[in-house]
Simulated scan of single mutants.
Amino acid sequence: MGFLDIDNVTKSYGAVKVLNETEISVEEGEFLVLVGPSGCGKSTLLNMIAGLEDVTSGDISINGRRVNDVKPAERNIAMVFQSYALYPNMTVRGNISFGMEMHGVPKAEREEKIAKVADLLQITNLLDRKPGQLSGGQRQRVAMGRALTRDPDVFLFDEPLSNLDAKLRVDMRTEIKKLHQKLGTTIVYVTHDQIEALTLSTRIAVMFGGNVQQLGTPQEIYDNPANMFVAGFMGSPAMNLLPARLERVNGAMCAVLKVGDGSTITVPFPRAEDLTEGADIVLGIRPEAMTDPEGADRDSNALTETELPIDVVEPAGSDTYVTVALGGKDAIGRFRAHNPAKAGQPARFTFDMAKAVAFDPETETRLA
Rank of each mutant, 00 (worst) to 15 (best):
Y13C: 09
V16A: 14
V18H: 10
G58Y: 12
A73K: 06
E74N: 11
Y87Q: 06
M100Y: 06
E101S: 05
I114P: 05
L121T: 00
R129A: 05
G136S: 06
G136L: 00
R146G: 01
A147V: 02
R150A: 11
V154W: 05
L156W: 08
E159C: 06
S162G: 01
D165S: 03
K167S: 02
R169N: 01
V170S: 04
T174F: 14
L179T: 03
L179I: 04
I187M: 15
V190L: 13
L198C: 03
S201C: 08
S201A: 15
G209P: 14
G210L: 14
Q213E: 15
Q219H: 13
E220R: 08
F229E: 09
A231W: 07
F233D: 09
E247Y: 07
A272N: 09
E277Y: 03
A289N: 09
T291L: 03
P293G: 01
A296D: 08
A296E: 06
D299N: 15
A302W: 08
L308I: 12
D311T: 10
T320W: 04
V322W: 02
F335M: 02
R336P: 02
A347C: 08
F349K: 05
F351P: 01
M353N: 10
M353R: 10
A354I: 11
V357D: 10
